[in-house]
């Protein structure tokens, strides 16, 4: 699994490091920590941001104890070197998995999505300011929302540091891709959370309620066979938006918005932005 961790110099970015480290410890993912400087690359590396990124890396590595970390600690002082128009610090040579630091210059939204595309990332993770605004300080308005809406891969916006005990997974049961189910599995395992699987029923473009129930029962069996507490909730297509708004107070919302997703057709992109902004809990957009 390849994860892009988008970070800035604010406390909400520092605050997500422990959760990301826990996910990395479970999955042995290749990690890139990315910072974006707004000043032009020709002006040189923003030293304050570089120092912040090194501090984020130290904080990440400090979450691992003992000899079992897949990420080796640097032997000496680390220095950013020029890399393809930006700067980077590569993984330590004896590291089992990659832990790279990168700084790119330009528009944060554009650079985060470009880096994720170039690396073939499975997941982008970022934090945001608390409360209903969910912003990145000093950046383009609604950056987390725009990343969640437009990225080519899955996006996890971490909005809280309290434990996630329930994941409400809204998926298009007839079309969801294996990769998205796998990502839900990892997040459920990470939090040791219960899983509520929301299936859609309705007259247009959806299967009959009995067929949906059958499909959902199969999905539930898949999870219960793997010792995960999972239960099913069927929601009428017309009531889904209101249901999701309410459910976001119960736990993390995972919304499958893949290309073939019925949800993608039903939800306007503005609604994803609204969900990310208004949700009390973290939000996982699956693709």
């Amino acid at each position: 699994m390849r994860i892009l961790l988008a970070l800035d110099n604010q406390s909400y970015s520092a605050g997500i490091i422990p959760e990301v480290a826990k996910l990395a410890a479970n999955t042995w993912a290749d990690i890139t920590m990315l910072g974006i400087q707004s000043t032009n690359a020709s002006a040189g590396l923003d030293q304050a941001l570089a120092a912040t990124m090194l501090a984020h890396k130290s904080s990440f590595l400090a979450q691992f104890t003992g000899k079992d970390s897949p990420y080796a600690s640097p032997a000496g002082k680390e220095v950013f070197s020029p890399d393809n128009g930006g700067w980077q610090v590569g993984a330590a040579p004896d590291s089992s998995k990659a832990l790279n630091l990168k700084v790119r210059a330009g528009s944060a939204i554009k650079e985060i999505m470009a880096e994720a595309d170039q690396q073939g990332c499975d997941l982008i993770i970022l934090g945001c300011s608390n409360g209903a605004d969910c912003q990145w300080h000093g950046e383009t308005l609604n950056l987390p929302q725009k990343i969640a809406k437009d990225a080519g891969c899955s996006v996890l916006v971490i909005k809280e540091q309290r434990p996630t005990k329930k994941i409400i997974s809204c998926l298009d049961q007839s079309e969801i891709q294996q990769e998205s189910l796998e990502l839900i599995n990892q997040i459920v395992t990470l939090h040791d959370a219960d899983l509520k699987i929301v299936g859609l029923t309705g007259p247009k473009g959806l299967k009959k309620k009995e067929d949906t129930e059958k499909q959902m029962a199969e999905i539930q069996k898949y999870y219960t066979d793997r010792q995960i507490n999972a239960w099913i909730k069927l929601v009428e297509k017309e009531g889904l938006e209101a249901y999701i708004a309410k459910a976001s107070n119960e736990g993390m919302i995972a919304l499958w918005m893949g290309k073939k997703s019925m949800l993608g057709k039903m939800f306007s992109s503005n609604l994803i932005e609204k969900l990310v902004a208004n949700s009390q809990s973290s939000v996982l957009i699956l693709r």
């Binding site: 699994m1 410890a25 479970n26 042995w28 993912a29 073939g120 990769e179 796998e182 990892q186």
Partner: peptide, 28 residues
Amino acid sequence: GFATMETAKESFRKGVFDFLAKPFKLGE
């Protein structure tokens, strides 16, 4: 698909070459 730190550690103790959590790309 259900990776934990314990399963990763146990796998390496048993001599596995590598540990990949799903999802992964074919190239990976």
